[in-house]
Write a protein that binds this DNA or RNA. Structure first.
Lengths: 128, 128, 128, 128
DNA sequence: GTGGTCTAGACCACC
DNA sequence: GTGGTCTAGACCACA
């Protein structure tokens, strides 16, 4: 896995897990990859994966069965959805709209960009 | 001034300067606050303001007259505008659109949020 | 059975056995549940129950008849009583008294809490 | 500093900080020792201190000023007091009373133990 | 000077 | 096999 340099790796791993939950790849009580496994897979140190998992556990997204592994919590999807949506509406969007004001971009232009993005993305969607 | 903890303070100061240029508060050859002044104002270490100014100077946004102060460069607004727009289109927007996919938010909803933001913001605009 | 996550499961199983001996539920030469039985009952791995039993056997609290099962040792109750009392007086109590100091709780308050606990517990006792 | 073997060192460091707050050694906005400093002092790895501080920060007991250090949060004492008291009343005490039942220890005996502890501790108190 | 992230690797407890 | 803790040490960003 390729990581970006602007944010800590463990945050990006967290995000990776969250996105897989959102996408429905892992459901309630499904087991997530073991720390070592994921560490090898992503070519990072187990400690780094561990840190990501710990944070997710603190937020009740995943839970641990001693000696067995980590599992998706019952309400994980709902919770992640709420968190993400809240962040999107209260942080991300206002910033974007504010930036639009500063850059004199109106909503019609935004729509153009959206349509452009939409068509570019189509290939991927059908593959999935 | 209150800074967020997730990004370096000097970056947030840079952003503050950039936004004031975009808003037209400071035009060509206008003097920006002195390092000391701004440091006191924002309750940060002068070194931190210094760093922000240095970066802006490196990008030809502001220039320095020794012993006098820092001033807005001639093409500053144009330059900031370009940089911001590029960042907006290539970084910010794609992330937002991507997040919309994950959260199952379509463009109509986005428009609703925009209208909401628009009306809420009106008060501020008249004050300015 | 629900286990707490802060201590090993096998320790909690040990404690469960010890408490039943103290309560008089199991007397000398009584048979304790088989490893399999208890494992199913508590939804844990048989190895884990095994470990608890081994420890108890090492301490001469229970003994094993091969192919038949585990049984309470003759002096088990006396022994458990001694161990528990020692632990209570030398570990648990000093910690509590120390904590009382930090929290500015005096002995009178402690008595109140005790009376409260006493009355609350009455219901259970009659049921048993 | 001497650590016990039954609990993780970082937990014991956390407890150390908490107790110093309770004792009034550090008040609001006081600076706590730097990570490196405390690490040397306690003869542990900086990472271990770091972990303790991170947890305390997550619980809003301490906060961080970038590049400067960690400081006691405004309501830290109140918060720590509440947490400790809650833990004492809801976890520690019930266990003790329960154990007293099992061991056939009545409240009068408890008082004896308390008086004993009280007199033993007097020396230390006058020294402090 | 401060904290933050990460690696490599060890050792342990638990299941 | 699993996770959890800890060390030693490096490197970086920040004030």
């Amino acid at each position: 896995m390729k990581f970006k340099n602007d944010r800590p790796i463990y945050i990006q791993i967290e995000k990776f897990i969250r996105e897989n939950i959102l996408k429905g790849k892992w459901g309630s009580d499904d087991r997530v990859p073991s720390i070592r496994e994921l560490a090898v897979d992503m070519e990072v140190n187990p400690n780094t994966v561990m840190r990501a998992y710990s944070e997710l556990q603190d937020q009740d997204i995943i839970y641990n069965k001693r000696g067995i592994g980590y599992f998706i919590n019952e309400n994980a999807r709902k919770k992640v959805m709420q968190q993400s949506k809240k962040n999107f509406l209260q942080k991300q969007l206002p910033q974007v709209f504010n930036q639009m004001e500063l850059l004199n971009i109106n909503f019609n232009e935004l729509e153009e960009y959206y349509r452009e993005y939409e068509t570019k993305g189509e290939d991927n969607e059908t593959i999935k």
